[in-house]
Structure formats: structure tokens, C-alpha cells
Amino acid sequence: MISFKNDYSEGALPAILQALADTNLIQQGGYGDDDYTQQAIELIHQKIGNTGAAIHLVSGGTQANLTFISSVLRPYESAIAATTGHIFHHETGAIEATGHKIETVFAKDGKLTPALIASVVDKVEAVHMPLPRLVYISNSTELGTHYMRAELIALYEYCQRKGLVLFLDGARLASGMQAGDIRYEDLTKYTDAFYIGGTKNGALIGEAIVINNPSLQDYFSYNLKMRGALLAKGRLLGIQFRALFKGDTYLSIGAYMNEMAGKLSAGIKEAGYEFLIASKTNQIFPVLPWKVIKALEKNYAFYVWQELDEEHAAIRLVTSWNTRAEAVEQFVMDLKACGQREK
């Protein structure tokens, strides 16, 4: 069985496993006060060009979203997200459980715009409705689309005018960045905070929360501890991010994943099939007949994303740091063979 189900089916980059083994018996401080975490933070500071950013390493994406959003919002404030946004669609009400409403807007491509945000902000009835304070976006999005630099700047400038916090979920940040023209320094300049995904980019676990806005940095560590996100063995996260941010490792993984997804897309198009949405990242959504889907499921793992009609559905295929070109080629060959049998 070959899996295109997600980008975390494998363990971790060999370099990360080796680094964990090499440092295993070296005694260090806990809760992030270890040499490896401090070195990782220094490397990230250098990449983003902002030594004033507060950087905190946590174990997962939901934890990153929960700890940051819950630390920013007052009890009567809400967050704005696309209906496909991870905090709304796939986090089991983690944000709502803290007492904060998520205001959702439909975005066909999964990307928010100033106009879509305004459709929520402009309808707020003072005192009688939750007050929107934070805008949540993802790059890449849950639909495999990505933001361009101009789009990010437009969002940030709108949020600045309206007194909103712009927070970017970077679970698949390397893939999103490599698909477009956003660079590390843009994330520093045009978000109040973002996080750098490790789990879906070759790490065993781990995300790095980067808080650019100084007014949001104070006492954040207290919220981490309260939410169970401050790990005694924080070194395990530090070692991994140190490995990811040496040289160009992090972004090169994103480029590789996108390349494999691009090969998949080209083969699927060649086989005569269309896509639910255009994507240049490591998530693609081909539309296939049910008969073909059932045949492929015998040898491949993937999600059926959306049922379109009685005969067709969109599936999600995801490539990872370890996706082999041979696996891509085999999938395309089998797809073509299934298509021929269907005819």
C-alpha cells in the first residue's frame, strides 16, 4: 500500500533522527532552556530577519493555534476564518472551548481577502455581538491554494486599519512559500504572528510559533504552561528545528514536495482528468469516477475529499518529504489502466 493520504505518514528526516541520537546522552536544561532550542531560535531569527520576534516551540498545529489565539482574545472577542479553516473544520472546537466564537466566511479557494473579512466586521452590532479581533489564515490553505505576497500585504494593511490581529497557520508553510513569492521576511513584516510547521515538513513532531508583534509577546509563556504546551523535554523540539533551519533544508523540503505533487498533477491531466481546484502545493484534488476511485483504493491510501455526484468525487493526494518518484509514476500508470478498464 502506497500512501498519498497525508505528509506525516513517515517518521522523520534521517538527519533529524541522527541529531537526536547524537545528543541523546548529553544533559541539558528543561522547558526550552537547552542549548539546542536556543540555537534553533537563533537560526529562525536569522532566517526571518527579526531578532525581536518571540519564538516558542510546541508539539503540534492545533496546540499552536489554541495557545496563540486563546492568549490574544479577550472573553468577548472572536476570530475570523474561512469555512475550510483548520481551526473551524478540523480542531474539534478547540478554540470555541476557550469561549471564543469563530466567525466563518465562504472562500471558494480557501483564501481570505479584505472584502471577505469586511463582510463580517461591517455587520457587527456593537455590544450585542462578539467583537472580531483576530484573522486566521493558512499558507498553504486546506484546499492546497497559496497566498501571494501582494495578497498578504493587502490583508495585513486592512487588519492594521481595523485593529485586527493577523495570524498565519503555517502547518504546510514550506510548501506554500515555495509555490508563491512570499519569503521569510514578508512573514515578519506582514503578520502579527505565524507558525512554522515541522510535523508536515520532515520533523517527528513540532511547530515554531513566531510572535512578531511586541504587544502580544508578554506572558505568552504562562499560557503555554497552562495549556500543557511547555514540554519538560523541549530539547526534542529544539534539536529538530535546529536541523530543519540549517542551510536551506526547510524550504528545500517544500520544493521537493511540490515537485512530486506537480508530477502527479501532470500525469493525472495527461490521463484526461480535471481537478476540483488548481494547486501548486503538495495537496492536489483530482476529480475521478467512483469506479476508478474504488479500484485505486486497493493499492493506494488517500482521502475522498468531496462527493460531487453519483458518479464522481474529488480525492485528495498529498506528497511528503519522502514521496518517491517511482510511487508517483506507478500511481499514474495505475490510474491510466483503471481509466482504460472503465471505458
Rank of each mutant, 00 (worst) to 15 (best):
C159F: 07
T191P: 03
D248L: 06
Q160I: 04
A208D: 01
D248R: 11
A64L: 03
D169I: 04
F331E: 06
G30E: 08
D35Y: 15
F285I: 03
K280M: 05
I41W: 06
L236P: 02
Q27T: 15
N322I: 08
A193P: 00
L166P: 02
R341A: 11
G180W: 01
N212K: 13
L13G: 03
A314Y: 09
I41S: 02
E259H: 15
S71M: 01
Q38S: 08
T319A: 01
G99E: 00
V120H: 05
N322H: 10
A179R: 03
G247D: 00
D33I: 09
K108S: 11
D248W: 06
E96P: 04
G267H: 03
G52S: 14
S320W: 03
A82Y: 10
A19C: 05
G32E: 02
W321R: 04
L276E: 04
V120S: 10
G202Q: 00
A255T: 05
P75L: 01
D334P: 08
S265K: 15
L308V: 13
G267R: 02
N201P: 11
S140K: 14
A154E: 07
L43R: 12
A313D: 01
A15I: 05
S320T: 09
V72T: 01
T92C: 13
R242S: 05
K108V: 12
V121K: 10
L143S: 07
A266D: 11
W305F: 15
E326Q: 11
R235W: 06
K233V: 08
G272S: 00
F302I: 03
A171M: 02
I41T: 03
K162R: 10
L244E: 00
A107I: 09
L335S: 05
F167A: 01
G206K: 05
T199C: 10
L166V: 00
A266I: 09
Q18N: 13
P114V: 03
A64E: 08
L13D: 02
T67R: 04
T319P: 01
G11Y: 15
S59I: 12
M333Q: 09
T84W: 12
F88Y: 12
L204S: 06
Y273V: 07
S320E: 03
T62H: 12
R324Y: 12
I26D: 09
V124T: 09
S140L: 13
R149Y: 06
N282Y: 07
V304G: 09
K291D: 07
I102E: 01
K225M: 11
A107K: 05
K111S: 00
A325I: 15
Q27R: 14
A97F: 08
R235I: 06
S221K: 10
M1C: 05
L152R: 11
Q340Y: 13
A255G: 07
T319W: 02
G176H: 02
K200D: 15
A327V: 11
A314R: 08
M257K: 06
H86N: 11
W305R: 13
R172L: 15
N65C: 09
S320A: 05
G110Q: 07
L187S: 03
S71P: 00
C159I: 05
F4N: 00
R227W: 12
V135D: 04
K246F: 06
Q178L: 02
N213S: 06
L204E: 04
K189H: 06
K336Q: 12
I153T: 09
Y136M: 07
L187G: 01
G262K: 08
A295L: 11
W321I: 01
L236N: 10
I205G: 09
S215K: 15
H90D: 09
Y76D: 10
